[in-house]
Design a protein around this nucleic acid. Structure first.
Lengths: 350, 350
DNA sequence: GTCTATAAATGGAACGTTCCAATAAATCAA
DNA sequence: TTGATTTATTGGAACGTTCCATTTATAGAC
């Protein structure tokens, strides 16, 4: 059925009895072409089953309308939501973003970035993988390709970042736990090689400091940012001499893991141990018990990142301002009623 | 910092004091080049900050090493798992697949496919959006681009499909419910414009037929394939004169919704109403109560699809066999103990 | 020494577009 | 009619690669 070699602009020209330039003009929707000619050409395009060769075109015009979106963990619904937010604005701009997953591997990330660059992307939105080397984006910067980081940043990079206010989010969540009457607090999950971790842990520590929780009453357990990691964190923490009564988790996945581990021990989140998550994925409010979590407006940040990218491309700059999104606490069931009211002082001996 | 115009193969040639052909050969790892020359060239490549222009290359060689993955709902963890399975095998083959999301919109899907085609993809793995027109892939077929469907198929298309055995999955799940003693069964969620729906519903109906559940005791409620859809289905079903005591759900998202709605009514999945899901996403076993679900080995199907694609590209064919994956039932808590044992006959009066 | 065989490197055409400068056709003013 | 202006259309060079056919250098056989 299909013709041997794929049709080109010249085949169309021959078919329609015009020159290749005319066809090109029609393809670009130029107003310089007489309507009847345009119709004739469009018909020929249909007839020969033409598909536009963007690679050839880019050779001349060098701006490619492809935007790459590099995501560190596609199976985390949080990032899927981020992606969806971005897509909304790109779609409106007539752009199809290509998503690539790095599965939290710096090596894979390098391959992915290389491939995207070679493809001639117009811009890159990246949530860097854990353990990304500090120079990993040098190549991209010198290539002059606009790039923005979403959700995560690199230690000393000058690349613009779109992210939630992690410090404040952790602060208000911790404050909430303390106001509920908890005196021995934990911070679960994540690892210190992530800037986000430092920000969130920083907020936690500042709240402890400000509201009078001594260092001795803080338990910090690093761990994988997954359900499994959360389960391990709880086990570790409860094995200590003076176990915490509440935990702020690095993200919701960790929090779900903690709640799971609690249930395995016959304890219940809310009643026996307070749990707060971070990111507020859609699942959080449907969980049993519903998870109290720091809302970061994921899709909104995605939209924001996309807008910034569009602006950078349009103004052919490689610089942009950071954007730190507002956060709030969605209070649900997983940290239970006030501890003071229920059994004041229990466990405050230390 | 960055040089004005981006470096090309000629800049490298000048820098290294060789011809452009030599540089090209080095780039392709040809053995015809003297090692010392190759080293010299590679150094020059570094020095000028060269990035390979795959578009230009494809203009000559016309096979592009890009594979597109078109997915209908990225926020469904089920599809994310599918994507991850595919990535595993593509990565091993040194290919970076680009993922694009259609968000279940046929219009968006058309844009996405067009863009991918223009980019010159070597192949396409597609999970078609709901309501895809029957001719939507004609263009791609005539362009001679290999394409396979994953998870979903189109009514009368000849494009190879990689999917689980939906009919059998639904059959064994239904059989399980009947053997547990349920006599009034429901099928929740999905809509008849999806072939998958017809397959799953078909398995449900065949099991009912075979095991003696009369049509009058079957409740079929179509609905969105989401939590929300599942909640609505339960409400509808329980409002009937002779409500069902068990339901097979179109997928896990629907099942989660059903369990949520049960809880809202003070009922519990397992004890008061049996729920079985389909797809067995990782969340299923962590849910409370853990969801009984039809396991389809999502990641495995993803790998399979990727392998088939690779083979098609390699043998430059556009045809391949369908692959129907084996399924099994992961029995967990959401359909409770045997109904016969617990309170035999209750509700069997009708 | 020359002659052949092999190894290494090269020039040039081609790929499918875009876009500039140029041409051809149509319209208008005088 | 002639020239000037506007409207439509067109040829050709350029974009950055690959790859074929050559050329040049190196080595081996006589």
């Amino acid at each position: 059925m299909a013709s041997r070699a794929k049709a080109t602009i010249l085949d169309i020209a021959r078919e329609a009895g015009v020159s290749k330039s005319t066809v090109s003009l029609v393809l670009q929707g130029s107003g310089l072409i007489r309507p009847e000619t345009a119709i004739k050409v469009r018909k020929a395009i249909e007839d020969v089953g033409y598909v536009y060769n963007r690679g050839a075109a880019n050779l001349r015009k060098a701006h490619s309308n492809v935007i790459g979106m590099v995501i560190n963990d596609l199976t985390n619904p949080f990032f899927a939501e981020l992606a969806v937010g971005m897509e909304r604005v790109f779609q409106a701009a007539g752009i199809v973003p290509f998503i690539a997953n790095t599965a939290e591997s710096a090596i894979r990330q390098e391959e992915v970035l290389k491939s995207l660059l070679e493809q001639g992307v117009a811009g890159l939105i990246v949530s860097p993988a854990r353990g990304t080397a500090s120079g990993a984006f040098r190549r991209i910067e010198t290539a002059g390709v606009p790039i923005v980081f979403a959700m995560r940043r690199l230690p000393e990079s000058r690349i613009p970042v779109i992210a939630p206010d992690n410090h404040r989010g952790a602060f208000i969540a911790t404050e909430h736990l303390i106001r509920k009457g908890h005196r021995r607090l934990a911070f679960f999950g994540g690892s210190s090689d992530l800037v986000v971790y430092q920000e969130r842990l920083g907020g936690f520590l500042e709240a402890c400091e400000t509201l009078g929780i001594p260092a001795a009453d803080r338990t910090i357990v690093e761990g994988e940012t997954s359900r499994k990691g959360g389960m391990a964190c709880l086990d570790t923490a409860l094995a200590t001499a003076e176990p915490p009564t509440a935990a702020l988790c690095f993200n919701d996945a960790v929090a779900f893991g903690v709640m799971l581990a609690l249930r395995k021990r016959g304890l219940e989140a809310g009643a026996d141990f307070a749990v707060v998550g971070f990111d507020d994925v859609t699942e959080a409010e449907h969980y049993i018990p519903a998870l109290t979590s720091v809302t970061v407006d994921t899709a909104g940040l995605g939209e924001r990142a996309a807008h910034v990218m569009l602006k950078m491309i349009q103004s052919r700059t490689t610089r942009a301002e950071d954007h730190i999104g507002a956060v709030s606490l969605a209070v649900r069931e997983s940290c239970g009623p006030d501890r003071n009211a229920r059994n004041a002082g229990m466990g405050d001996a230390a």
